[in-house]
Design a protein around this nucleic acid. Sequence first.
DNA 1: CCCGGGCCCGAGAGCGCTCTCTCCCGCCCG
DNA 2: CGGGCGGGAGAGAGCGCTCTCGGGCCCGGG
Lengths: 348, 348
Amino acid sequence: MTETAPRPTLEAVAARAGVSRATVSRVVNGSDGVREPLAERVRRAVEELGYVPNQAARSLVTKRHDAVAVVVAEPETRVFADPYFALQLRGISQELTAHDNQLVLLLTEGREDYARVGRYLAGGHVDGALVFSLHLDDPLPGLIQRAGVPTVFGGRPGWNDGSRDVVYVDSDNRGGAREAVRHLAGLGRTRVAHITGPLDQTSAVDRLDGFRDVMADADPRMVVTGDFTPGGGERAMRELLDRCPDLDAVFAANDLTASGALRVLRERGRRVPDDVAVVGFDDMLPVAEQTDPPLTTVRQGIEEMGRLMARLLLRGLDRPADDPGAPRLRVTRPAGPGARLSPPATRA
Amino acid sequence: MTETAPRPTLEAVAARAGVSRATVSRVVNGSDGVREPLAERVRRAVEELGYVPNQAARSLVTKRHDAVAVVVAEPETRVFADPYFALQLRGISQELTAHDNQLVLLLTEGREDYARVGRYLAGGHVDGALVFSLHLDDPLPGLIQRAGVPTVFGGRPGWNDGSRDVVYVDSDNRGGAREAVRHLAGLGRTRVAHITGPLDQTSAVDRLDGFRDVMADADPRMVVTGDFTPGGGERAMRELLDRCPDLDAVFAANDLTASGALRVLRERGRRVPDDVAVVGFDDMLPVAEQTDPPLTTVRQGIEEMGRLMARLLLRGLDRPADDPGAPRLRVTRPAGPGARLSPPATRA
DNA sequence: CCCGGGCCCGAGAGCGCTCTCTCCCGCCCG
DNA sequence: CGGGCGGGAGAGAGCGCTCTCGGGCCCGGG
């Protein structure tokens, strides 16, 4: 804990350079119209005094904060248990700092925090928000929209009506799931089971839909609800084996789930992939199990999603609000099929 | 992306309530000395207009930002691969929001970002910083101290000289390691090996020191350098088995390492714990392997460390800078021995 | 040589808030 | 009954910056 010395002001720099505040401001903000010798004198003064603009004073007049909130509406510790979000966060951070924006992190511990978040966003402390809230009935998105803050969502928000103007970034969960299941079918598997994610999340629902797209006539007992965790995968796999001992393939809603399923299969003496083929969904990196290169591409993809979110938000911010050329777009980023399919298959 | 309406100002509230700005300010900031009927009128006006104070204007005069930076100086993706940091972050977030402070997250991608971070901190955008930088030769801590921002470090900074006034929060790595190794010795193991963490991190060094405290006369070949990852654990375990096939216990520098070691032991047909006993260091939760209750306490401990960091920082901020009663303290939080030892032992 | 037009630069007015200082009013005590 | 005192409310001066506006200077053209 050191002492913060009184920082030099624009005024001080102006005095030292023998010019007016306005001129210093022009130089500092890179606007042209200052003749070189003068500009140079100002720059030297800035340097000598170690001048750094006071952001508070600046945003007081510009009404810009160069800060973006990242809201994580996930009470569970689970968000942290997998690197998925962390990677997106990293991508977001990269993109934001590339545009000199700060990242204000808002974690919520249950809905009692929502009011606080709403107040903060409505308070105009940030220029925009990136929101992760993947639960179907979550009030947060609505709350945020009402706060009037430009927002980009991570993952498809769980609203049934398509009428809302919403910008979101998501991977192609349904299409990816379809490909995964078709892959299994292509291997000649006929009794394919599915361990879902928690069905109050759109990603889990979409993956289930993708499964059903291909396995329309599947035995309903072949679908068991999981929760995106290894433990859930274990539980579900046990139930599946009890119900349908003759299954020959499993599509797990994510890799963590797949890892749990694999453990149970091994425990029950099933050979993988000879007896049972397993495919996961490579949004997540099974940390403790794999660090192989094959996953790298997907991890990049996740970061890229984060970057994309940030980019979309910043682009929206740069544009005057009533710009008709600002389409309310929905962005869907497909996950690369190759990267998604191969690693679990080979691992299994 | 919705529109942000022009927000009501103090002035507007004052007009509506028929009082002066000063009075509204007093009410809003909860200072006493406003008679109840008036105060009530002001409160109603605030409510009706949906007034939210403009933070920029406020900090312009108070010089407080109610914001704290969290700096993560870890270029590797690895930080995100384990939940250790995420849990601390969560604890920090809880404590900060409890005191109405915002969390500004500064991630660095290598040292080229350090200048940016330094500039930001020196720019007085935040009241303080929580810094995670566990590498021995890292220039960041010095840079930050020079920026004159009150700082609390996560993990013992790697300075050799104890002369610096530094506040940090860390677990008792050395003591914990000692206990772990003693535990193994207590089981009658005599050929105890150690897989270290990356030795440019103080936590790894401290754990190694703890190991040596107990196993002073250990065969130097019984110590192999790891990197806190499962992959590193595998590599190290293979090397250990090749070098000293007769080892009967392994102390792994963390749980991720332990999980890798376990896999190799199983692969090589060693029975655990009959042939080889394994103890990890429970700072981290091996996500994909365990979700058992025993680890819960430790996870709480990690969050608590985060909370402690935030609390120390905020306490320092509340205090006038030259307060003689503000001791430059070092805080060391011991990890609970029971929680640390039992799960790996039982798991193994 | 004089006038018009740029181009630079400085003056000054705020942005929305806090906080001190002053003023006013009511009450208590002599 | 009057003066002093104290507490509650308002006036006003900034905090450090941006940005508009106007004035000065230099140039070219008539």
